[in-house]
Simulated assay, not measured.
Amino acid sequence: MVDEVGNQPQYEAFADEFLDHARDGLFNAHYDRPACMALLGDVADVTVLDAACGPGLYAHELSRRGARVIGFDQSPRMVELARQRVPEGDFRVHDLCHSLEWLEDRSVDRVLFALAVEYVDDRIAALRELRRVLRPDGALVLSRLHPTGDWIRHGGNYFEPRVIEETWSRGWRVRYWLTSLEQTCEELHQAGFLIERLLEPRPTAAAAAISREQHDRLHREPTGFLAIRAVPDPRTGA
Rank of each mutant, 00 (worst) to 15 (best):
P161C: 09
A13V: 10
S99H: 11
Y58M: 14
A29K: 03
G66T: 07
V120L: 09
S75A: 11
S99L: 12
R23M: 13
I195F: 03
D233S: 13
D90W: 05
D3W: 13
R23N: 14
T47V: 14
D95G: 05
A22Y: 09
E165Q: 11
D105G: 03
R68N: 10
A29P: 05
W151T: 13
V163T: 03
A114M: 07
E61Y: 12
R197V: 10
R229S: 06
R85W: 06
A82K: 04
D233R: 02
G54R: 06
E182C: 10
E101H: 12
G89T: 01
V69E: 08
R144D: 15
L198S: 00
H30I: 02
Q190R: 15
C53Q: 07
A205W: 07
G25R: 06
Q84D: 13
A82M: 01
A59Q: 04
D42K: 07
T184M: 11
T179W: 10
P222A: 13
G66Y: 09
D42R: 05
D121M: 00
L199P: 04
S107Y: 05
M1T: 10
E17Y: 13
A227E: 02
A22E: 12
R33V: 07
H219N: 12
A230P: 02
H215N: 15
A82E: 01
D50H: 02
Q214H: 14
A35E: 01
A59G: 02
P87D: 02
L103H: 00
R175Y: 11
G192W: 01
N28E: 14
A208W: 13
L130H: 05
S180I: 05
G237F: 11
V141G: 04
V43W: 00
V48T: 01
V46H: 08
A230G: 07
A29W: 03
E165V: 12
A22L: 07
F27M: 13
T47I: 08
H154C: 00
C97F: 10
E213K: 14
G155K: 05
R197Q: 15
R212K: 15
H94S: 08
H30P: 02
Q190I: 03
D90G: 00
L112S: 00
A35Y: 04
P136S: 11
G41C: 05
A29G: 04
I124R: 12
S180N: 09
I228K: 06
D32I: 12
Y58C: 14
H94G: 02
G156T: 02
D50K: 03
P147I: 06
P232A: 03
D32W: 05
D95T: 04
H60L: 11
R212Y: 13
A35C: 00
T47Y: 06
R106A: 14
T223E: 12
L115Q: 07
H189W: 11
L178K: 12
